[in-house]
Design a protein around this nucleic acid. Structure first.
Lengths: 203, 203
DNA sequence: TATAAATATATGAATATAGTACAAATATAT
DNA sequence: ATATATTTGTACTATATTCATATATTTATA
């Protein structure tokens, strides 16, 4: 990778993260990264092209982290816990300003590109869930998309003050969420026993 | 205070805090605060005039908090600890983006205005230090300006990762800093005893 | 030294923004 | 209810900013 291009990507990300895309000018990116405007346009056709590249690299990075975790031969439960911790979904890693400007840029090309990326990632994740399901690591009567949806929401939830304030610290909350997640989807016989007991008490 | 003006001030602060002054447009402030451009220009002559008003109110608010703390008849030590906790110096309360744009606005009038405000606040604080010094609450051989300087740096220091990582939590660090601050400036006889003991050990 | 890459500066065109004018709408007080 | 003041929406112009490209010069590299 070209050194100058890397500098543009780095400062571009820094600025976009802070201020969003539309508030940042090409000239500013050039000045801060110590690169002339000409070299900028040598590598990127415009500001939104740079934004696309940045988004690209983030997704690739996250996909790699995902693959690394999933390829290890640990317990399935531990792998999912790791996914949760690194917040796999790249949109969670982005600043609100950046994603917002990206979507509202009006550049339909960008949006469809982003959707394609997300679709691809979702495909990989859901496929892995299906495999895990076939292996018996997840209950067979759950839709894989639901699991992915819930995992995504769990990450979001852990940022909500309303939830956080229920626990004395974040670790406790994460543990609680993970426990809920696993005891809800893992085929544990304890759940059946628990249900029976509950039933007895009700009667 | 006019309701519309207050709305402009609030959203102005919100936007300036996030993006700095130069990245925010008058129209944006108007739209977000639900106020027409005409009423904006009725209350403020331009964007930097609004910024000045915002800075004004912050300083006034902080001055009031300061006065409130200092007028209470608690121990001097406790008062200073409170000052440290609320980060009295208004510049610390400001976003880096805002202060930076404010100073680099090129509007010399703004800068001198800010300097005047700071000078005034410094005067009040230092005067209080001198009074405390005369009362014997602070060692007589310390320059009040130094104390103020150090207090200010202490606030900044408590934001440094290098320092933070030395302690298991922020509370511990704050305590450490405060202890250092007071045992350094308070006229405690223990310090003399400590010195004697240390000397004995060395021999 | 020859060749490629990067820079500084200038420039025109497109776009965004600031600030004002004015008629219509809304709120407020009597 | 009516007169008065306030606010709004829209339009408008002048100015400023930004984009994107062109060209001459400098710097790095093989």
């Amino acid at each position: 990778m070209n050194k100058k291009k890397q500098q543009i990507l780095t400062t571009g990300k820094d600025l976009f993260w802070k201020y969003g895309i539309k508030r940042v000018t090409v000239e500013e990116i050039c000045n801060r990264s110590g690169v002339s405007k000409m070299t900028f346009y040598k590598h990127f056709s415009n500001k939104y092209d740079l934004a696309m590249d940045i988004m690209d690299s983030i997704y690739d990075e996250n996909i790699n982290r995902y693959r690394e975790i999933m390829s290890s031969d640990r317990e399935y439960k531990d792998k999912v816990a790791d996914l949760y911790k690194i917040k796999l979904d790249a949109t969670n890693d982005m600043s609100h300003e950046f994603l917002n400007d990206y979507i509202n840029s009006g550049e339909t090309e960008l949006i469809s590109y982003l959707n394609g990326k997300i679709e691809k990632i979702m495909g990989i994740i859901i496929n892995d869930f299906i495999i895990a399901q076939e292996k018996g690591e997840i209950r067979k009567d759950i839709k894989p998309e639901f699991i992915n949806f819930f995992l995504d929401h769990m990450v979001k939830m852990s940022g909500y003050p309303e939830l956080i304030k229920l626990y004395s610290n974040a670790q406790e909350m994460i543990l609680e969420l993970l426990n809920f997640f696993f005891y809800g989807i893992l085929p544990r016989s304890e759940i059946i026993n628990l249900n029976k007991q509950k039933f007895k008490n009700d009667v």
